[in-house]
């Protein structure tokens, strides 16, 4: 019993790391993704955004992570800590997917909403911030929740640059104690709880904004 508790505590530290990594990455991914999807509507930037999206989605995440952690510090001569490198890599990666989700959300909005904003003399910045994006956010929320859960599971890749997340810690415990089942079960429970937490928060927000779903 003692080993179970001490393993839970040991993996619990990984839970905090995983949570920090996921939240940091999704914050970066959302901010950059929104920026990219709006930039898509500026004529000169379209191909830039498309190129970015295409490169990110066409290369393995593990490669992107390695470039950011191993090779960029080599080039500019600054070492990054594992968490920041992870947040940057996962954040950049998810920005392309978030931008893609947003793009379809924006495209499915009636063109008349943009036109109504224009006829009322609403400047572009405010149109996006107050009229377009809030509606898009409402519509894509379920897809976005899926993206966050996918990101949570992808953060397990952090172990290749030495990040001590839930998965890595469970493997260390397993190797030390020659016992796989228990630590992996604990890891599974932790990941599942995190995923359910994300889904719960998503549903909470969804219920709050449901009033305006169908106009």
């Amino acid at each position: 019993m003692d080993t179970v508790i001490s393993n839970c505590i040991y993996l619990g530290k990984g839970l905090i790391f995983t949570l920090e990594l996921t939240m940091g990455s999704i914050a970066v991914g959302l901010a950059l993704g929104v920026f990219l999807s709006v930039l898509r509507h500026c004529r000169i930037c379209v191909s830039l955004v498309r190129g970015w999206s295409s490169i990110i989605r066409g290369t393995p995440l593990i490669l992107q992570l390695s470039i950011i952690y191993f090779s960029i510090p080599n080039l500019i001569g600054v070492r990054m800590n594992i968490l920041s490198a992870g947040i940057i890599a996962f954040g950049l990666n998810s920005s392309a997917y978030v931008a893609e989700i947003l793009r379809s959300g924006i495209e499915s909005l009636p063109k008349g909403q943009f036109e109504a904003a224009r006829t009322l003399g609403i400047p572009t910045f405010y149109m996006w911030r107050d009229i377009i994006l809030p509606q898009v956010a409402m519509n894509i929320l379920p897809t976005l929740v899926n993206e966050v859960i996918a990101l949570l599971k992808e953060t397990t890749l952090i172990s290749i640059i030495g990040g001590m997340d839930i998965m890595r810690r469970s493997q260390i415990v397993a190797a030390e104690q020659f016992e796989y089942f228990m630590p992996l079960c604990i890891a599974g429970v932790y990941y599942y709880c995190l995923a359910m937490l994300i889904e719960f928060i998503g549903e909470k927000i969804e219920r709050k904004v449901a009033y305006a779903k169908n106009s």
Binding site: P110, G112, E115, A116, P134, Q135, A212
Partner: peptide, 14 residues
């Protein structure tokens, strides 16, 4: 100044 009323209103639903 011009004002416009759309056939399908285009009220802001949110």
């Amino acid at each position: 100044k011009i004002g416009f009323m759309f056939q399908d209103f285009q009220l802001f639903p949110h």
